[in-house]
Design a protein around this nucleic acid. Structure first.
Lengths: 192, 192
DNA sequence: GTCTATAGCGCGATAGAC
DNA sequence: GTCTATCGCGCTATAGAC
């Protein structure tokens, strides 16, 4: 709280705008209007848009993986862990003024127009998330609770894609409730 | 070939650009350079970008659903139909200069910056695809081949989101081969 | 139907005062 | 650290000649 508060406000505004509309539809002017600061001041904190995106992805990844780890730690049951993991995507969707998808899901669509540090950050987000899903799935299999055939890595990739894609598709119809129903349905396929 | 060839060339170029980079990163100038025509000429065929997007979505939807229907008709086995359906997404991903996702998957991320006819078109694409998946899934269940618990509509939504999301995520890592592996893994979950 | 030319705007980014 | 002012560019879109 001593310093850097403006930086945080900029990142918060940028994140919300991107989650709602995408990076290419978000401008310094939009951020400026959202938090009541001039464009030039934003450039002082983040010289270029690429730098802003990069910082945003780093912060989001750390924050989101932190949520994942704490939510996974708080449950013993892999099935509960999986639903809790999915609920992070659902919560984003229903947060605030709504229609917010995962930041890195949005950026995935815009990957080829991103700077290379930003693009690398998005890929890392995907990898880290899938790695955590693998752990949940393998634990569930060891316990004799999940009964899927095949590679846990592929099931993890499947579930991750389904949640990222589901967040985007559910914005068009059904919203967070529909995403939740999809997550529960997916769990049913794993349990038997 | 008698007429309207320019219109088709414009739509082809626009589609490729959007599938690769997104609608907000695609400009009349890009199309102009791709097909060797002036920007003003594009405006003659499609007065506004919204009109171009709308026409593009209509054409894509008709084309894609046509592929779906013919591919479904050509297979008897629901499991084969499902893999064939998924292969449409895989084929897009590996086509041409690569890294092309589903047009409406890309536009789903940019939904809130689309004009309302375009947005409605994207939603319709989602609905029509899920409806076709429901039919495949129900047929598979009736035949005693698919063994999923729960609502076929939810499983359809799940699979559709997984393919749309998977196309986006697989562009970051693994490409069409990874998407194919995910589709096969999904089928395994349904078969038993 | 395609062209040249240009209007009018919003963008990312920079210079320099305070 | 924030501001005013502005640059230069690319965008969508339009007017009008050919």
């Amino acid at each position: 709280m001593i310093k850097g508060d403006t930086k945080t406000a900029i990142l918060d505004a940028a994140q919300e705008l991107i989650q709602r509309r995408g990076a290419n539809a978000m401008s310094y002017q939009d951020i400026s209007e959202a938090i009541g600061i001039r464009k030039a001041s934003i450039h002082h904190h983040f010289p270029t848009k690429d730098a802003l995106l990069d910082a945003l992805i780093q912060r989001y990844t750390a924050y989101f993986l932190g949520l994942v780890d704490s939510v996974v730690k708080s449950k013993k049951d892999p099935a509960d862990q999986l639903l809790a993991y999915a609920s992070l995507f659902e919560a984003t969707l229903s947060e605030g003024k709504q229609d917010k998808a995962c930041l890195c899901g949005m950026l995935g669509a815009e990957l080829s127009s991103l700077g290379s540090p930003a693009a690398a950050g998005v890929k890392r987000f995907y990898r880290e998330n899938e790695a955590r899903l693998v752990r949940i799935l393998e634990e569930g299999k060891v316990r004799g609770q999940f009964h899927f055939k095949g590679d846990a890595k592929l099931v993890a990739a499947m579930i991750f894609s389904l949640l990222e894609g589901g967040a985007l598709v559910a914005r068009a119809e059904g919203g967070h409730k529909r995403l939740h129903a999809m997550a529960e349905q997916t769990l049913k396929l794993l349990l038997k």
